[in-house]
Amino acid sequence: MHRFANPAEFNRLADAILPWAKVVMAAAFLYGLYLALYASPADYQQGESVRIMYIHVPAAWMAMFTYMVVAVASFTALVWRHPLALLAGKAAAPIGLVFTGLALLTGMLWGKPMWGTYWVWDGRLTSVLVLFFLYLGYMALWRALDEEDKAGRAASILALVGVVNIPIIKFSVDWWNTLHQPASVMRMDGPSMPVEMLWPLLTLAVAYKAYFVVVLLYRMKLEINLRKLSVLSSLEVQG
């Protein structure tokens, strides 16, 4: 079995990483929020509401990034039958779901002042919505099958099928978006942005990533202990 296959080895690694990740997270959040809320200019068009972008875009990025993590974990779990990789997928998915939910929420709160309606069928927002359903499907499949190991591998297959389809979905939604509504709402996230706006965005992106590492390790520890519990209780049953 691989070096990281047993939980004790993983816990040691996690305990080594956690303090550093927390420090980076705290620093990046503090500095990022300072930049985002105070030390960056308002947009000439959107005014102060552009500040919502600083937490909307990182959330959307992390929503996508987390699904990639789930897909890689699923691939490892299926190809090398690695039990911890299986649990990593299960641990990461809820975080991805929260990021996706936040991206949608902040997208709506950003759209309302500008376009007068909360929901705008903008290409990127719609892709994030579809991603939300992919997360729901993955997590529902984990719970649907009674045997944990089978449920994990079934969900892993779904994640791999999903990750192959994500670029196709993204492309088709953007295509559909230009077809029906040429003006795009969220143009403000490309590098074409003024530098003063890029810094808060990147800082908060780092903060979100560090946050992801911290919570993923928390949830991995949780999943490992839950697995141990089911193992121990199955032994109790046989006495």
Partner: peptide, 9 residues
Amino acid sequence: LLVLPLYVP
């Protein structure tokens, strides 16, 4: 739930 998102394209 699993399949409909993949039908979008």
